[in-house]
């Protein structure tokens, strides 16, 4: 099964072949787990969510649209699942509440290089991940969906039930916060 191309594996998985489903698990479990970990901010919750996503996959793979790259589709399923979990924790409220006229921090472009822009060592990249983990949900979720799942603003807006412009603003503010945290941490 390892040597087979992805299309063949998916085709067999649609027929509920256990080995094919196992192969999909083997190939993508880390990516899905990484997304869940970043979105849910807890290893235990991420482990549960990962299992549930792959259980869902067994049921929903028949509805997979081949025009979408499979990893992208799978990460979208995982992202939706995590958002559902967060919504459930918040007792049915929207995960991110859209507030009109939310004050935007407009900062002049800094002449100094962003702490995020420098080439980084492994430890520094770990610091970036910790800083992302410490962001509040409203910033961390769209940031993760953009730079981990590589979803477009429209796709993120659809998943989070927000306006596109609001997603853009949240991602921008998330990066501003990250810069502040990393700059503060480096002092």
């Amino acid at each position: 099964m390892e040597g087979l191309d992805l299309e063949s594996v998916i085709e067999r998985a649609r027929g509920h072949e256990a080995e094919a489903l196992g192969e999909l698990y083997r190939r993508y479990v880390r990516r899905v787990f990484g997304l869940c970990r970043c979105m849910l901010n807890s290893r235990e919750s991420a482990e549960d969510a990962t299992s549930e996503v792959f259980l869902k996959l067994q049921r929903s793979i028949e509805s997979y649209d081949v025009s979408i790259p499979f990893p992208r589709w799978l990460l979208r399923v995982a992202g939706n699942h995590c958002i559902d979990l967060l919504r459930h924790q918040g007792r049915g409220r929207q995960v991110i509440v859209e507030v009109e006229d939310e004050a935007t921090v407009i900062e002049a472009p800094s002449a100094q290089p962003s702490p995020l822009g420098a080439v980084m060592s492994k430890e520094e990249r770990a610091q970036v991940r910790n800083a992302v983990a410490s962001l509040p949900d409203k910033y961390r979720l769209p940031l993760t969906l953009r730079y981990y799942s590589e979803l477009s603003y429209d796709e993120i807006a659809e998943q989070l039930d927000l306006e596109r412009n609001h997603v853009a603003a949240l991602i921008f503010r998330a990066k501003q916060q990250l810069r502040r945290k990393l700059a503060h941490g480096s002092k």
């Binding site: 479990v29 970043c38 792959f54 822009g117 420098a118 990249r125 991940r129 981990y148 990250l178």
Partner: peptide, 26 residues
């Protein structure tokens, strides 16, 4: 250019999450 570098590092840092040990299969 600075914003592109920033995006690249952000993407690389987050994608390293996929290199962490995967959970046991339940």
């Amino acid at each position: 250019d600075a914003l592109r570098a920033e995006n690249r590092v952000l993407g690389e840092s987050l994608h390293e999450l996929a290199e962490e040990p995967a959970p046991f299969r339940r």
